[in-house]
């Protein structure tokens, strides 16, 4: 099979600001790709366009060889793109099981009844929330909420998983658990695009990195190579100086 995701000349404008400027890249099946860059470089905007939360101002996005540019978020989700959010988005009126069930019921598989509940339980177990399905999400700790979001994304059997700083805010022990979890997902054959600031975690998970700065791609290649690129170093240090 060819690329899972192909981004072709995509731009996004907010008023006078060009947040993403003519970005192109493609992702092969089974890869874990890091999307890096200083704050404000357009990473989350890029994820938002891929998942349909934002419309592109120009360019095309294809998912599994089909154009998804301009499709609403729920249709893109149904095709097999799942995501987590920079700030966890839970559904506080619902239990943990129901928070995950929604994606099983409306995602790619449209499961309901016992089959859906089995699937939810399986994915809760995968992220380490086994047997806690009846708890209200309002009572969950931060790491457990992050786990819930991952289970919600995974329950739909996505082809492409978008993780937006999913590891941010975790302590070192939790970070190790998180990295192991991402690796386990890869073993299941899922393609992952992750936005991350924690370089150790990026090195531990991503074989390839795309680095953005000021809305444009400045490096794209094997992780070590991309991170050693002089322009990447300048972009990060320049950011630190500011």
């Amino acid at each position: 099979m060819s690329e899972v995701l192909k981004v072709d000349g995509v731009s996004r404008r907010f008023g006078g600001l060009l947040a993403v400027n003519n970005v192109s890249f493609a992702i092969e099946p089974g890869q874990i790709v890091g999307l890096l860059g200083p704050n404000g470089s357009g990473k989350t905007t890029m994820l938002n366009m891929i998942s349909g939360a934002l419309k592109v101002s120009g360019g095309q996005i294809a998912f599994q060889d089909q154009l998804v540019t301009g499709l609403p978020a729920h249709k893109i989700a149904k095709r097999g793109v799942a995501r987590t959010f920079q700030l966890v988005r839970s559904l506080p009126s619902l239990t943990l099981t129901e928070n995950v069930l929604i994606s099983a019921a409306y995602g790619r598989e449209r499961l309901w009844g016992a089959a859906a509940l089995d699937k939810v339980a399986e994915n809760l177990a995968l992220v380490g929330l086994e047997g806690r399905g009846d708890e209200p999400v309002a009572d969950l700790t931060y790491i457990d909420l992050k786990r819930m979001e991952l289970a919600r994304a995974m329950v739909a059997d996505p082809k492409l998983l978008l993780l937006d700083e999913w590891l941010a805010g975790l302590n070192p022990a939790e970070l190790q658990i998180g990295v192991d979890l991402i690796r386990r997902l890869q073993q299941r054959g899922i393609t992952i695009l992750l936005v991350e600031h924690i370089m150790d975690a990026v090195r531990a998970t991503c074989a390839r990195c795309i680095v953005m700065s000021a809305g444009a791609v400045i490096a794209d290649g094997p992780t070590d190579q991309a991170l050693a690129d002089p322009e990447v170093i300048r972009a990060y240090l320049g950011d630190d100086d500011a």
């Binding site: 609403p72 729920h74 799942a82 988005r89 559904l91 009126s93 994606s103 019921a105």
Partner: peptide, 24 residues
Amino acid sequence: SRIWLALVAVGDDEVAARHAGVDV
């Protein structure tokens, strides 16, 4: 039925519901 789940989800957080596949 699943529609109830979708409705409550819409009341809680439309963005999360949308990305879970709900046509809000």
